[in-house]
Write a protein that binds this DNA or RNA. Sequence first.
DNA 1: ATCACGGTTTGCA
DNA 2: CTAACGTGCAAACCGTGAT
Length: 432
Amino acid sequence: MTIKNQSVALIDCNNFYVSCERVFNPALKRKPIIVLSNNDGCVIARSQEVKNLGIKMGVPWFKVQGFAKNHKIITYSSNYTLYADMSNRVMKIISEFGSHQEIYSIDECFLNLTELKHIDLNDYGQRIRARINRLLGLPVCVGFGASKTLAKIANHLAKKHLIYNGVCDLSIKEHDVLDALFFKIQVKEVWGVGKRIEKKLVELGINTVLDLKRSSPRVLRKKFSITMERTVRELNGESCIPLEEVTRPKKQLICSRGFGIPVFSLDELSEAITTYTTRVAEKLRYQKSVATMVYVFIQTNPFKNKDQQYNSGRLISLMKPTNDTRELISAALRGLKSIYKPGLAYKKAGVLLDNLLSSNQYQKCLFDDIASQKNSESLMQAIDRINSKMGSGTIKFTGEGLQKRWSAKSEKKTQCYTTSIDEIPVAHCGPN
DNA sequence: ATCACGGTTTGCA
DNA sequence: CTAACGTGCAAACCGTGAT
């Protein structure tokens, strides 16, 4: 599919998690800040000051902890509740700037602006930035291009080079102008090119974005995949990755977590699996699906070479598709019992729901016990409503456990400033 | 040979 | 003092048995 002459924007928040923390603690401005992944495991967000110090994205925290202390880097556990709420606010503001929006991740979205003819995109981008900054105090960068891939690159340039002042428009540039820019950008910066594909490309002599732009789509399709062919076409201004305005229901859903401490007992694993199943079942109902299969898995810590290693999982087929948390828990726990081996130090566990069907479609099935199904539906609906209104975890399932000794480490989490009534700051003067 | 399938691995963000 | 390394998803891949 080819859509010519598109005009696409990519708006991406700068150092999103760090910026969210700064909004509620302005004293953090211009200070070096790090936000850690779940379980305080890895570095997943860095302020510019930290990037300048050379700390890499994704590095395990323990490897840089000493260095961070020496440089007085302020560190936070991630506070997804806060970031999700801020993300919703950002996306809402951006939606005012275009009628076709794809929310691509927690901190970035595309807009298709093709219908806005003859506007000055640089100016438009600055207005987007100003509005988000005024209303939320968050910094963003904006890139424009003739395809999503080009908009991504434009955004990358806007972020990297101060001369752009946060907005880069590649949509009007001639090929030779683009080529001159692309000559200087490493191929790994291209959307869809990660570490592995970069390596393979470099082996083929494709080092820069320009090299990739000039490669034959056919040849790369053979050597890589259809995805890579599209990437090459998109670099040449041919839009072939459509904007996805509606989020398609997922084909599989997963909830998995590492434990804060090694877990040995079946009881504690059962608590974790019950908790994760509850969470993933909420996601399932949120996207109006039912599941036909439940996969449970448990793992020891692969980084502890001295420990005996064991990874196991079990796939359980359900008698009938369901989104009832109770049925899913029962299946998951059955699976867990069948794979559990005593005496091992488990580090991580998870639950995956697979073969998902739309719950509307499924309801038409004739052989169901309609009464009990309606019953289950209204119970789950009631629980979801209460938990969403009064805070998640207001109603829990037995078996989730109360202490949860195993729960992930999160030693430096900030408050839920925007979503928890007890944690709303008393006095706060907006962005300044 | 080729296909559909299901389970596993890879790779990205 | 030591040990301390995320999560969620889909595409790609691969072996198998059926045609």
